[in-house]
Amino acid sequence: MIVLLTGSTGYIGHQLALALAQKHIKVHALVRDRNSLNIPLHKNIRLFQGDICDYQSVLKAIIGCSHVIHTAAYTNLKCKRIDHFYNINVRGTENVLQASLKYQIKKFIFTSTLSVYGPSYKAVPIVETQPRITSYSNDYELTKSMAEELVKKYRKKGLSSIILNVSKVYGPGLSTFSNGVNRLVSMICKKDLLIVPNKLKIVSNYVFIKDVVNAHLLALESNSKNANYIIGGENVSYMTLFKTIKQLTNSKVRFLKVNYSILRNAFFIINSIRYLIGLSPIITPSVLDALFVNRPSLSDKAIAELNYRPTSLGLGLMKTTKHLNKLS
């Protein structure tokens, strides 16, 4: 088996590339910068310099491949330019889909996000059949949803595909924009005081990075075709998450709860000032809104059909804490 993998210098893609290679699967890794420090190195990984936004470079990388795993995406929620999201998440995805169809790829695996479903309805856990009940809160959610529609469009053209909707990922790995939980662990370890919104009863789903990698391997090897799977772990509130991390790290940090609206307005003012002096924003109000909505979910379908087995939050956070302690 030879797999074209996009996004191999990203948080999920990097570990996935090495996991594939260690299983003696040949990997064609499409990378923009061959000198990146995030390049996964292994004898079974062959680098192809290019970009998913450049169709010709995708064609060169896909030759000889039987399967495709598309993890590359633009995820910077602080970015206000929709073209950045659209070019990579939509146009780039269509380039990979078009090349996959051209070369009769046996299976196309698309790494998506749980957030395309939006918030849960009345805190009922999200499942694969839930329709979206709200408007899109940011360009990332919008363009990933558009990309999923493209995947389904190419199914009708004969391309077999699996979509994996991943919840909030955490665990050892590269430090990237999507490592929000890892950054939270580090802050709880290092700070004496953290200012947090008072909406700590909000529930989200958290999934360990190795479970996400394993889900891709299971999807690759399964007989499942043209399916969507939610890939998650445990559903917990922010309060439970904070307390668990604090206990595991033996932290003495104190949490100062601030009214959500006041904190949101404060971020708006701070970011406006930073914009005027040429600095990038910190957490924007839209990012805050995306973080503080209920998104519990269930992975029962993946458990039943892929034999997916998620790691408990306590064990996953313990491994994460040990990893971050080694880096500090």
Rank of each mutant, 00 (worst) to 15 (best):
V3G: 08
L5A: 04
T9E: 02
G13M: 06
L16S: 04
L20I: 07
L20V: 01
Q22S: 10
K23Y: 05
H24G: 04
H24Y: 03
P40Y: 06
K43E: 08
R46S: 13
G50Y: 08
D51V: 02
D54G: 01
Y55D: 01
V58S: 10
V58C: 13
L59N: 11
L59F: 07
H67W: 09
A72I: 13
L77N: 07
I88D: 01
E94D: 07
L97E: 04
L97I: 11
Q98Y: 01
Q98H: 10
K102L: 12
I105M: 10
K107S: 06
F110E: 01
T113H: 00
S115E: 05
P119L: 03
V124G: 01
I126L: 15
E128K: 11
I133V: 09
Y136M: 08
Y136K: 14
N138T: 06
E141A: 10
S145Q: 08
S145M: 07
A147N: 06
Y154E: 10
Y154V: 11
K156Y: 07
K157P: 12
G158S: 08
S167P: 09
G171A: 09
G171R: 04
N182W: 01
I188E: 02
C189I: 14
L194V: 03
I195V: 15
L200K: 09
K201R: 11
K201F: 06
I202V: 15
S204P: 00
D211R: 04
N214R: 07
A215G: 04
A215E: 12
H216M: 05
L218V: 02
A219K: 09
A219W: 04
L220M: 05
S222T: 07
S224N: 12
N226D: 15
G233Q: 13
V236G: 05
Y238V: 08
M239L: 12
L241N: 03
F242M: 09
T244F: 08
I245S: 04
K246W: 03
V253S: 13
V258I: 15
V258P: 02
N259Y: 03
Y260M: 05
F267G: 04
F267E: 00
F267C: 13
F268H: 12
L276T: 03
S286T: 15
S286E: 14
V287C: 04
S297P: 09
S299K: 03
K301Y: 08
I303G: 03
R309C: 07
M318S: 12
T320K: 02
N325W: 05
K326Y: 00
L327G: 00
